[in-house]
Design a protein around this nucleic acid. Sequence first.
RNA 1: GUGGAUGUAGCUCAGUGGCAGAGCACCGGGUUGUGGUCCCGGGGGUCGUGGGUUCAAAACCCAUCAUCCACCCCA
Length: 419
Amino acid sequence: MGKPVYQKVRGMHDILPDASHRWEAVEAAYREVVGLYNYREIRNPLLEDTGLFQRSIGDDTDIVGKEMYSFTDAGGDELTLRPEGTAGVVRAYVEHSIAAVEAVTKCYYIGPMFRRERPQKGRYRQFHQAGAEIFGAPPPVVDAEQVVMLAEFLDRIGLGGAVVLFNHLGSGETRRRYRQLLSEHYGARRSELCTDCVRRLETNPLRLLDCKVESCAKMKGDAPKMREILDGADLSLLERFRSLLHAAGVEAREDDRLVRGLDYYTGIVYEVEVEAERGSVVVAGGGRYDDLVAGLGGSETPAAGFAIGLERVLDCLPESPPASVDLFVLVPSPEAEATAASLLLEARRAGLRADLDPRAGSMKAQMKRANKLGSAYVLILGQKELEAGTVAVKDMREGGQVDVDVAAAVKHVLERLGR
RNA sequence: GUGGAUGUAGCUCAGUGGCAGAGCACCGGGUUGUGGUCCCGGGGGUCGUGGGUUCAAAACCCAUCAUCCACCCCA
């Protein structure tokens, strides 16, 4: 064994053939579920102008401030590997004037995102998200529908019982006012704050509520509450949102500490949590961003979306074996290879996963290979069979085998497999 | 970005200064043409990497890289 000259860059992972089938299954389930809700796929570039992310995610956020893979290309353009999916989707929505063609647009995406963070479990520098966005729809019906869709997806892949934590960030003016009030409340007792919170006063006052340091946490008790700032319309939206989720059987709890790390969120925001062996894991997050389309040059357009962390989802799912082979052909001698090739072709055209051992070793070695691949049936093309124009069909499960005419062998296996 | 733990065979790990190991996996064999169980055998590691201490380093020291945990933040 040689020693590797290169290794994968930090925080990035190879999805090897022994694991990729799990990804395929999760992605297929996602496409299927969002298709039922009439979402269509959008495929955006991985690279965008750096300014797009600065404008949409916000200059003060951690993502823009210190986590982006940005560079100047040979032509002098400032480019960034996308750290999330929404910005690019909104950019495309505006750039292609989609609003002019249809009043409501629903699209989904699946793909890699890049953030230069310190990696750990469930946190990678290249990770994958499956997301969905809707444009041109006011709250709260579509917001609830997106959360239900998300729950349906999780349920389908075996992560039932997800819990939704939601909050209302206030829209536009109320949100700014609330940040101001929080900043004043905590700022008045600045000296008792931890160093992180002193920084938060400036960068993200909403995060002050989430501090776990005791002296800071104590101040939360008499801190102004979002609910006190929200107007009647906001509160009734929240209530309708809640009851729509309830009606769909989705467990949802209001959580006034819930804050999103991206500046474009307005109004209803949420996170989705599932129980895993190591505790509860947030596998998805989303919310409404009613100002973003206009912020990127489009007309005022209500919009909402979410993103699911696929690694986090997969980390919660059990290992599963890859697809096994339906039919394996044993080729004991070169004289049998032509017959083997045509049998394999016939089998594959009939939709069977079929293979042989390209090393052409002993029959025992080839049988071991067939067994390792989990083959249901093995066709044995021995000298005896070749001369008789037959092939031995062995049932690997039962262990028995029968001689069948070469021309009927694949059909025989298809019948036994019930296909 | 900060603090901590870990890095020995493909995988899980034992080995605390004196010849690099186990289990599983992989490959082969157990007479004539047949897998899974069992028995026997085999290949594979410059002990993450680079320095240092020592007669002698997988082990001790320093650095570096990677993974994991906590923080920060987030999917």
